[in-house]
Each structure stands twice: as C-alpha cells, then as structure tokens.
Design a protein around this nucleic acid. Structure first.
Lengths: 283, 283
DNA sequence: ACTATTTATTACCCGTGGGTAATATACGGG
DNA sequence: CCCGTATATTACCCACGGGTAATAAATAGT
C-alpha cells in the first residue's frame, strides 16, 4: 500500500528565480525525493507552513489531513512533528504569519504622515492586498475555535489590535476634519468586513490582480465617509517586505516541558519589527 | 454510561408565548422528556433544523456532532435519520432556508418601485438584518465543501443569484442616474462583503440590534456610490414573514430509492413564493 | 383488541485521522 | 572511525463520530 519511494519529483520543475519570500505561493519542496536532504531547519519549517496554508485554504482545515500536507512535501506525517507540536499549532503559525504581516502594514501606516483619512486609505489598500495572499486569507478563513485556548487568546488579541487601528484612523479623521462624522465602530466594521470578504472570493488566477482590487476597494470604501470625494491614484509602494529567518525549534521532547512558551522573532523589513510569535501549548 | 432516561427536562421551562416562526432563536423542543410526543412531523423537522443551525454556528459544523444536536432535542442520534439522510443534508437544509429568506428579500425588492439606488438600499437593509439571524448566518458561515456535489451546485447557483441582484440594482442605478458610475461587479462585492461579514461578528445579545446595524450599514455602504448623499430614515416594514408547512418526509428506506429528488415548498407570505427546496443526494 | 406503520431506542460497526513508539539513516565533530 | 544528535521512516494505537441494524414503544385504523 504505502511504499511511495521514488517515482515522485512531480511538481518541482520550476527551477529557481524566486526571491520574494513570504507572500506568493511558492510551491517547491526542500525535500527532493530521496536524496540530498539538507537545508536550514527554518526553511523546512516555512515550507511546511506554505504547504499547510495552501491545503487548509483549498480543502478547509478539517478536510485537509496531515498526511496530505506531508505528501505534498515528499515526506511522511510524523516528520511534521519535528517542527510542530500538532495540527492546531500549524494552523496557529499560519495565523501568526498573517498577523505579523498585518502588523507591519499598521506599523508602516501609523508611522506615515497624513490625515486620518490618508492613513485609513493607506491601511485599506495594504490590507486589501494582503487579503489576496495565502497568509492574509488565513486571518479570515480559519476558525478560531480550532486553536488551543492559549493560542486562541493570542489571536483574539491580535484581531482586536487590527480593529483598533481602523477605528483609530477613522476617529482621528473625524477629529482632523478629513472624515465625515460617523460611528467609528460601525464604520470600521463596514470597511474591515468588506476587506475581509476579499479573502473569501479572491482567486489569484482571475481577471483581477490583488493590486487592482486593493486600489478599487480603497476608493470605494473610503468615499462613503470622506469629506471630499477623491478619485486620486493611490500611493504606490513595494508589495510586502521579505521576512528574515530566526528562531529555534519547538522540540516536543519526552522530558515533559510543560507550558514552554518561547518566542520567534520575524523582523519587519522597513518598520519597527516588534512582531513576536509565541509558541507552545499545554495539552 | 448511557441510560439517560428521565432526569432530563432541563432547559424546557420557558412555557409558551411564541408565535414568531423562522428567524428568531426559538429554543424549545417538541420532544418533552419522556411523555406526550405527538406533534406534526414538519414541526419536528424544523425543530431539528433550529437546533442544528444553532449548534453549527456555536461550535462549527465539524465540531458539532449529531449527538449534540440530538441531545439538545431530548432525543438520540438515530432518531434524526427519520428526518434527514445525513449530517450534510441537515447543513444543506439550513442553507436552503437561508436562501429562501434571501430570495424573498430580493423578490420584494424587485417588485417595489423606485430608482436603482432605492432598490439597492432596500435590499441592503433587508439583507443586513437577515445576516443577524441564525439562518442568515448560515449563508456565510458554513462551508460549501461540506455539501454533496449536487447540493453544492444548488447553493452555488443560489449564491450567484444573490450576487446578480446586487449587481443589477447597481447597474440600473447607474442607468437611471441615481448611482455614480462604477464597476458594478466590484461595487457589489464591496457591499455584499461588508454585509456578509455581519454574519461573522454580530451577536444577538450585544448593544446593537439587528435593525440598527442594518440601517446604519444601508446608509454607510450606499453613500459611497450614491450621487446624492442622503441620510434619510430608511423604510420601515415588518421583519420576516412566517413560513407555512408543507412537504413530506425524505425517508431513507431499505428499498434503495436512488436519486430521489423531491421538492418542499415553503411559501412566502407577502410576495410571490416561488421558493422550492430540493432534497436528496446520490451517495 | 389486534395489527400495521411510524418513530424512537439500544447497541454496534468501522473508516478516518491525529498522535506516538520504535527504529533506521544521515550528518557533524572529536 | 565512531558516537551523539537531528531527522526521517514504518508500523501502530485509539478516540471520535457518522452511519446502520435490530428492536421496542407509541399511534392509527378497522
């Protein structure tokens, strides 16, 4: 039955020519079928996450099995446990990467100059574009309840932080006169909801590029509350910065290390990278 | 272990006083603990659906088990199979009810007079309010991929119909001058996305009523594309019409009735009720 | 009352899939 | 060259939950 020895290699024929790191479906496996398996640990870890997030999005978290994930990487299920404590931790890490990317967007936006409306637009366009990527979709397509208690709290906190950013920009926009008076809470819900929904319908192969959707939405969503209706060409900048490697293995270990919560820095490229990633669960 | 004989009755102490039918979390079971179990078949069927949709929303489809559903109704799992062919069919029926409700909204809106913008606003407010109900949430919180091939197609078709309604109203609004020129497709995505997201965050117990959210969203979302910015008090009408009973049992039967697709009419109260519900799957 | 039909119950099956134990192979350093 | 560590494999466990078979209780009809 098993014995999937060589005979693979399958979809690993795109040679190289990739420098963009995180967001972009980077489908190649560091595990070449049966020989030459060395490579930095973190690259493998990230490869697992890339495969996992793709599968979770394609099939849904519950339908996608760890065997599926492993198969896509030319390895077997137990090998995954060298890098993660369990399925839900993989899910959490996908979520974490998404949140780091959002935090970068927020940090950059907050650091920039401009009115409240300017910032709202800037965040909107960045957030929208993020929603067209795999890790961005993670933020809205996965179910909080699949996480452990501890990790769920972490994610909830992060989500609140995002919501806060939208509200703050709107509120400051009202204060500086760039935004019409309105309830920041509901307005934020309306805008963020529309953006989040992108993660449900956007398909990378479609007629629309992520950038195009982002720009259109930025105009459409902010026009309703802007004091002066603008149809400007929005700011143009680089897509998303790369992520540099760091951190160390989770190690399950037979010596019961209870509640080991360690950190894994994934520095931002341009802005202040205070993005951490906590690991470990109690079980 | 088992032997859950009497000793129940639990949460069945709200006496009566219920007349509102479908949308409104109507938590009471026609199966009183162990005596007097008669009642029309369809009422039981609907009670199953009410319990199921609540549980699916609370816990998520995959975490909620049929035992959970049954327990909430004071019955046991196999009893559910008197009314449904399987778990995924229950899910589908929840979806179907939601779609019938949407179809009613669309039908009423289309039948009404007014500009494209008027219709867009009318649909928006109704749709938003629907998203605050259990069956409305079904439309956006459940996963298509949990359905059988056949049922999935049905739902997809229905979803396209909804999308079409939004686009058509926007397009006709552009034609009659009530809406600013824009891409109907993207504008519809933006509005519907925002509305759909309500189904993810709205909690009935919160500070906001469904009606309040609906009215605020109707203004907020259409202001961006309206030619004349209005802050009108939106139309006031009755919530949602009742549903009358009809149809007949699915019956699994040991005589293999392959591919039995029957219909179950659920007439609308005010508008033309062409809402059908197809049943059966191939397996 | 007896019987047929519907509707529920108890007891069970079994596929699936997350997770683990034991083990084999590669790698790196002294 | 050999040993320790990291990393992978094979083979297994077992809980969970959807679904079914056999059966019992209730209901309706005559």
């Amino acid at each position: 039955m098993g014995n999937i020895r060589a005979t693979f290699r399958s979809q690993c024929d795109n040679g190289n020519a990739m420098d963009a790191r995180i967001p972009s479906s980077n489908t190649e496996s560091p595990w070449l079928p049966f020989e030459s398996r060395r490579r930095a640990r973190d690259e493998k870890r990230e490869a697992v996450l890339r495969a996992a997030v793709q599968l979770f999005l394609e099939q849904g978290y519950h339908r996608a099995t760890l065997n599926d994930v492993a198969k896509r990487l030319n390895i077997t299920k137990p090998a995954l446990y060298n890098y993660f404590r369990g399925k839900d931790e993989i899910l959490f890490e996908c979520w974490s990467i998404g949140h780091e990317l959002v935090d970068e967007c927020i940090a950059e936006t907050s650091a920039s100059a401009g009115s409240g409306l300017d910032k709202l637009r800037k965040l909107t366009i960045r957030y929208a574009e993020l929603m067209t990527t795999d890790y961005g979709k993670s933020l809205v397509r996965f179910d909080l309840r699949d996480l452990s208690e501890h990790n769920r709290k972490t994610v909830q906190t992060a989500k609140r932080r995002i919501d806060r950013a939208f509200r703050d920009y709107i509120a400051s926009g009202i204060a500086d006169g760039s935004v019409k008076p309105c309830d920041p809470k509901l307005a934020a819900f309306a805008i963020a909801g529309s953006l989040n929904w992108i993660g449900h319908w956007f398909q990378p192969g479609g007629e629309l590029t992520g950038r195009a959707v982002a720009e259109e939405f930025a105009i459409r969503l902010t026009d309703g509350i802007a004091k002066t209706t603008t149809r400007e060409t929005t700011t143009r900048k680089a897509a998303v910065p790369a992520a540099e490697k760091a951190g160390k293995p989770p190690r399950k270990g037979n010596a019961s290390r209870e509640d080991g919560s360690e950190h894994h820095t994934r520095a931002a490229a341009g802005a202040a990278g205070q993005s951490k990633r906590s690991r470990g669960r109690l079980r």
